[in-house]
């Protein structure tokens, strides 16, 4: 690992000032950054440790749940407010990484984690995300883990987070601070598709810091489910995952939220499916129709064609469990 300078941030403003200097990066849990630094995928000159800032709180106020960026993934997943109000988030977090990693990983770090694409990780191979204009090794290479939606000529990587899939489904807002003050962004507008700039995963500017997230209260708690399909039963990234949140009363779906993970460069919201579910009674034929619709526009590469069927079946299964047609 390259030598770097380490400083402990004393305030949010101090972090923003420090980030103005090129080559400076925030470090939180370090579980992604230290890994990438060891491999030479990234080599910052200076790290700003934000872990002492007062950004850990989880509070419920006026119709929303605030979660500070430094709340650990383990703490959030076990928090009673989260479990009561947003069980989908708790489920998604518990499906991610391992207990040790969740004890280190933070909300902001999880949002900012880089793709696990093997070509991104191996500095001897081409990757437009790591080294713009070097080419995409995955497109014609081993692309079993890669995207089936929203890919570009330049990049077919997926965003690896579980937490983010739940947050995208839950209409979350991201709170960001920068030179010009604070701003808010819809979670679904935080991450981006690769397009011509796969080196950028999201719309956070280089000198901005994530302060936290807000999730609006909803009526989804009784009918939420996070289904994660992976190569082993635990401690592996998703091949495909589905986050479902339904508001059901008197046997009718009043409102629905659906998002998929492991299929795109960002959590993939299924807006059309949500509309099609509203006002209907849960049934297997309905869910099969929803899944067929959700796969429209999917594009497979040499090794990931299986994902289209897998994702379709995962959508059906997650809807069946969330609506109570079958037990988890």
């Amino acid at each position: 690992m390259k030598q770097f300078e380490y400083v402990k941030a004393g305030s949010t403003q101090g972090v923003i000032n420090a980030l103005a200097q090129p080559g400076t990066k925030i470090i939180a849990g370090g579980t992604n950054l230290v890994d990438l630094m060891k491999r030479g995928v990234t080599a910052p000159d200076k790290l700003v440790d934000i872990t002492h800032l007062p950004l850990k709180d989880i509070t419920a106020t006026s119709g929303r749940l605030h979660i500070g960026t430094l709340a650990l993934n383990s703490i959030v997943s076990e928090n009673s407010l989260v479990q009561k109000k947003q069980p989908l988030l708790s489920m998604a977090l518990k499906a991610g990484a391992s207990p040790q990693l969740r004890n280190m990983a933070t909300v902001g770090g999880n949002m900012m984690q880089r793709t696990r694409c093997g070509y991104f990780y191996d500095t001897t191979l081409p990757c437009n995300k790591r080294q713009p204009e070097s080419g995409c090794g995955a497109k014609e290479g081993y692309n079993r883990m890669h995207a089936i939606f929203g890919t570009s000529e330049k990049c077919i990587a997926v965003h690896p987070s579980d937490m983010c899939v739940a947050l995208a489904a839950l209409d979350t807002t991201v709170i960001i601070a920068g030179k010009k003050g604070e701003r808010k962004l819809a979670f679904t507008d935080f991450h981006k598709l690769p397009g011509d700039t796969p080196e950028l995963d999201n719309h956070l500017a280089k000198d901005e810091i994530i302060l936290g997230i807000e999730i609006p209260d909803n009526n989804f708690a009784d009918h939420s489910y996070y289904l994660k399909i992976r190569d082993r039963q635990s401690y592996a990234f998703a091949l495909v995952s589905v986050a479902v949140a339904l508001d059901i009363s008197n046997g009718v779906i009043r409102s629905a939220r659906l998002a998929m993970g492991g299929v795109a460069h960002k959590p993939w919201r299924l807006y059309d499916a949500e509309k099609a579910l509203a006002g209907k009674q849960p049934s297997v034929p309905l869910f099969e129709q929803i899944a067929r619709g959700a796969m429209q526009g999917a594009k497979a590469y040499q090794h990931n064609e299986f994902k289209i069927n897998l994702a379709s079946n995962a959508v059906i299964q997650a809807l069946k469990v969330a609506s109570g047609l079958v037990p988890a």
């Binding site: 402990k8 004393g10 000032n17 119709g63 604070e182």
Partner: peptide, 29 residues
């Protein structure tokens, strides 16, 4: 709600940090 911007409790906490402390911290960084 997405479009309005309100101080959250955690932001207030930062804003209330004594300015001397913030200054020292900035220099430190």
């Amino acid at each position: 709600r997405r479009t309005f911007l309100k101080q959250t409790s955690l932001l207030t906490a930062i804003a209330m940090a004594p300015s001397a402390l913030v200054k020292a911290a900035e220099n430190h960084v």
